[in-house]
Simulated scan of single mutants.
Amino acid sequence: MGLRAAHEALAGKIAVVVGGCAGHIGRGVTLGLAREGVHVVACDNDREGLASIGAEVEQAGSTVSAHYADVADESSLDAFWDEVAKQTDRVDILIHVAGLVERHLFAETTRTLHARDIRMNYDYIVQSCLRGLPLLRASGRGASIVNFTTIEAHRGAASYAVYAGAKAATTNFTRALAVELGADMIRVNCLASDTTPARASNAALAPEDFARLAELGSDALAKSIEFYVPQKRPPSVEEVVDGVLFLVSDLSRAITGQTIHVDGGTSASLGFLDWPEGDGFMPAPLGGTLKRMFG
């Protein structure tokens, strides 16, 4: 199937996007689907985003039914799925974008924070998949689920321990569910991003981290990305959305149970940074950088 045919095949499909009305990535996913002619049922806990997403989707050439839901609350998410079932007799695409990340040393966390991280990054996805499964099976023609995970699911992310564990659970849940639903032609995949515009807005760094960066000037964070991301820049929202569109289109019709890393190469480097002062790619700085730091 060619690229044009694969994208034309998306037109008229029905997608549910959990966390699809606000934030750079969630809103971008909803608008990206709309531009392909997909009809979207979305939920979010951001009321400003809910109020404005409709007009943007109409401009993109499709329709959206936007609902308030807080995925941290089981009853709120159930109420959203009750509404989905009232509106449509099938779902072709289910995307879970909602999530939460904060930086904490594990010794400084609490059981309340643990429960929140697990709920927001794993448990709600399990609940939503279970609620959505009858509608995903309804057409008999297959469907696609995309769960957002992260590079932190694949490495020892110190100061993000419970978050990373929850995202790893989502990743392996995705694999297992893909095997179970393979005969139904319901594909289940993950999209793992890394440094994207959503990370800062989700408080991935503590306030004191942002304060230190601010003291160094506006170019400091961009310069650090050049060390960290092999492509020397983070993926844009549009590039993350392109990854989603690939996974829900027929271009990936034989791909299931996989994690697609849209990260500019950071998952491939796995700790090899491009150090300055001539040191190049190494897991730790060499003489040039060390001399600059301590000389």
Results as ranks from 00 to 15, higher is better:
G19C: 09
C21T: 08
A22T: 05
A22Y: 08
G23E: 00
I25D: 00
G26P: 07
V29N: 09
V29C: 10
V29P: 05
T30G: 09
L31W: 09
L31E: 08
G32S: 06
L33E: 14
R35T: 14
R35S: 10
E36G: 07
E36M: 09
V38S: 08
V40F: 11
A42Y: 09
D44V: 02
D44A: 02
D44F: 06
D44H: 11
N45F: 12
R47P: 01
E48I: 06
E48P: 01
G49F: 06
G49H: 01
L50I: 03
L50T: 00
L50G: 02
A51N: 02
S52D: 04
G54N: 13
A55N: 02
A55I: 06
E56S: 08
E58H: 04
A60D: 03
A60Y: 13
S62W: 04
S62N: 03
T63G: 01
A66F: 02
A66W: 00
Y68T: 03
Y68S: 02
A69Q: 07
D70F: 03
V71S: 13
A72I: 14
E74Q: 12
S76C: 07
L77N: 05
D78G: 14
A79Q: 11
F80V: 08
D82P: 00
A85Q: 14
A85S: 08
Q87G: 06
Q87P: 00
T88V: 04
T88P: 12
T88G: 09
D89P: 09
R90I: 12
V91H: 01
I93M: 13
L94M: 12
H96G: 13
H96S: 07
A98R: 09
V101N: 07
E102V: 13
E102Y: 06
E102M: 06
R103K: 10
H104Y: 03
L105V: 03
F106S: 09
A107N: 05
E108S: 11
R111H: 12
T112M: 00
T112D: 04
T112P: 00
L113N: 02
R119D: 12
N121T: 13
N121I: 07
N121G: 11
Y122C: 05
D123I: 12
D123E: 14
Y124T: 10
I125T: 10
V126S: 13
S128L: 11
L130V: 15
R131D: 09
L133G: 09
L133Q: 02
L133H: 01
L136H: 07
L136A: 04
